[in-house]
Simulated scan of single mutants.
Amino acid sequence: MKTVVAVYTGQGLADPLKAVFREVLPDVRLVNIIDDSLIGDVVQAGHIPPGVARRLVQYFHHGEELGADVILNTCSSVGEVAEEARKLIGVPIVKIDDAMAAKAAAAYDRVAVLATLPSTLQPTMRLIEAKAAELGRDVKLVNGLAEGAFEALTGGRPEEHDRILLETALRVAKDADAIVLAQGSMARMEKALAEETGKPVLSSPRLGVEQVRETLEKLSRGEPIERPSFGGATQVCG
């Protein structure tokens, strides 16, 4: 049985992601590492503090020690730390939003990025830009920061969170060919937002788990997994 270790910076996505794993990878042993202080510290600082980066890399090391065949980083806010950690960890790290960003960059010329936190919005936009650059494409990104939605959710007002998110989606949809949900926890609204805006809506959980499955299949076939090396070149693991 293959083992996947999922590292979380908050509680909200763990149960929905378990459901996706049961559907996409039912025979995989899933181990969760959850430290909800991480996203709290990121939100408070407005960026990724060094202490958060250190703790996150430690959790990736713990995942490797737990016997992970693949580690899944589930938080877009710290995706750039996960990218750098690939240089330090001996097993592949899949970022939950990688496949979503690649799909958006390849398929659409104008992409609205919906987020409730600037700390998630900016890394997601940079990731889509990077994917577009790899493809030689020029993709216009539309800022879809849903101000006040995060506070509504953490304040126990989920209906207000959903209302703000929908209003923001309707606003940015006018200037976009598709909408990307920067936070995996938004995936529950994917269908509703697509129906209300009339635009394709992409979310990360299923696409991320499907990328985990593809990575496991490559490992089973003995194919090397590319990852960045120090200095920006590429090395392989596997």
Rank of each mutant, 00 (worst) to 15 (best):
A101I: 12
I89W: 05
L121M: 08
P92C: 04
D97L: 14
V113W: 00
D109P: 00
I93H: 07
A115C: 13
K95M: 09
Y108E: 04
T116M: 14
K95N: 13
D98P: 11
V91C: 11
A102R: 13
I89K: 03
A102S: 14
A115P: 07
A115L: 10
R110P: 14
I89T: 13
V94Y: 09
A107K: 08
K87T: 14
G90I: 00
I93A: 02
L114A: 03
V94I: 11
A104T: 09
A102P: 01
A99P: 06
D98Q: 13
A105K: 06
I96H: 09
A107C: 07
I89C: 13
V91I: 10
Y108D: 03
L117C: 04
T120C: 02
A99L: 03
V113C: 00
T116R: 12
K95D: 08
M100T: 15
K103M: 14
L114D: 00
L121E: 00
G90M: 03
A106D: 05
R110K: 15
T116A: 15
L117F: 13
D97M: 11
T116K: 11
D97C: 14
M100E: 07
P92V: 09
V113Q: 01
V94A: 05
A104G: 06
Y108T: 06
A112T: 09
D97P: 10
A112G: 15
A101T: 07
A105I: 12
D97Y: 10
L121I: 02
A105Q: 04
K103Q: 09
Y108Q: 02
L88H: 08
L88M: 13
V91L: 02
S119N: 14
D98G: 05
I89D: 03
A104V: 15
A115H: 14
I89A: 13
G90K: 09
A107W: 03
Y108A: 03
K95E: 09
A104E: 03
T116S: 15
V91Q: 04
A99T: 06
D97A: 14
A101K: 00
P92N: 06
L117S: 06
P92I: 07
D98A: 11
A115M: 10
L117V: 06
T120Q: 04
V94C: 06
A107Q: 12
V111E: 05
A106C: 00
V111Q: 05
A106H: 02
A105H: 02
V111D: 02
A115K: 04
A112S: 14
K103L: 15
K103I: 15
I96T: 11
V91E: 03
